[in-house]
């Protein structure tokens, strides 16, 4: 018997943390749910009251990062502690792309998921964090299948389509979700010889490409993010194949956050039932003011961050 087999057997006999299965499995438990950006414990409570499956702690919501400018970083540890104490649902937090020390801090604080996020100012313009080195799982953004598979190869246990955060405009989320799904559909039509060239084109590992081609889906959960502002936006993204929804500025930049948050939760569960979406869409007050993507210059776009 090889040494490897022996160690695999003994590791099965006693509790093992930080495995790919528990990391990816955590994301499975969030499916069909809404994860809401919060910057304070008070906002986290509103999100939990509304039925969020998790909250995402960050320093400023994307709309404020856009309007205020400057470097956007990981949230203050005291603020994250406050959010963890305020709610009983999972707490996620954002780290800058490539900033392994921020991610280490978040893991030490005890957050349940780290979002290595393009919404914050990147700390490394060539490399993402080696996510296999962590016990805490990571979610990463992607605009297409190649990017998603590169993140998974680095250890991401969940993927979200990027969209364009802080705009309240769902068009980029739609583009990225459709693109990822179309890329996957295409792979399922290729023969085994063609998969090698496809992997090269996608700039992704052959093993992951072959896995997606066989399964027709990612090996991890796929959520959507970036620009979701209404219950109908959430329902649309679910119909496009998202397994759940991140909402950032769309809730706390609107007129009645508590009501809008609860409405988006319900529309996500009943995404295919227009009667429910109608009912929850009434009387929500002002939606966040949106931004047309044509009004953003290339440097103002966040989705291009990540490599």
């Amino acid at each position: 018997m090889s040494e490897q087999q022996t160690s695999a057997e003994s590791s099965n006999a006693r509790p093992t943390t930080g495995t790919a299965r528990v990391k990816r499995g955590m994301a499975e438990m969030l499916k069909g749910g809404v994860i809401m950006d919060v910057v304070t414990p008070e906002q986290a409570k509103i999100a939990e009251d509304a039925g969020a499956v998790a909250v995402m702690a960050l320093e400023r919501v994307p709309a404020d990062i856009r309007s205020q400018g400057g470097v956007a970083r990981m949230s203050d540890p005291d603020m994250i502690d406050g959010i963890i104490d305020a709610v009983s649902i999972p707490v996620m937090a954002k780290a800058r792309i490539g900033h392994m020390a921020e991610a280490q801090v978040l893991q030490a604080i005890g957050v349940d998921y780290v979002d290595e996020s393009e919404v914050l100012t990147p700390a490394d313009e060539a490399n993402h964090i080696d996510k296999w080195a962590f016990t805490v799982p990571f979610v990463c953004g992607a605009v297409n299948l190649g990017e998603a598979l590169r993140r998974i190869a680095e250890g991401a246990a969940m993927i979200r389509s990027k969209g364009e955060a802080g705009t309240g405009n769902v068009v980029e989320a739609t583009r990225h979700m459709r693109r990822i799904r179309a890329d996957m559909r295409r792979l399922t039509t290729l023969d085994s010889t063609e998969l090698y060239a496809a992997a090269k084109e996608l700039r992704a590992s052959y093993e992951l490409v072959a896995e997606v081609a066989a399964a027709g889906k990612l090996p991890v959960v796929l959520f959507t993010a970036g620009g979701i502002a209404t219950p109908a936006d959430a329902a649309m993204m679910m119909q496009l194949g998202a397994e759940g929804v991140f909402v950032g500025s769309g809730i706390f930049k609107s007129g009645d956050p508590a009501k809008r948050a609860a409405a988006i939760v319900k529309a996500t569960t009943f995404y295919d039932d227009p009667d429910v979406v109608v009912k929850v869409s009434r009387g929500l007050g002002e939606a966040m003011v949106g931004i047309n993507l044509d009004d953003l210059s290339e440097t103002q776009r966040l989705a291009g961050r990540g490599w």
Binding site: P15, T17, V111, D112, Y113
Partner: peptide, 14 residues
């Protein structure tokens, strides 16, 4: 609820 701890404490065993 959440008796075993947070996500970093999530585990597999036989």
């Amino acid at each position: 609820r959440n008796a075993f701890g947070r996500q970093v404490d999530s585990f597999e065993t036989d």
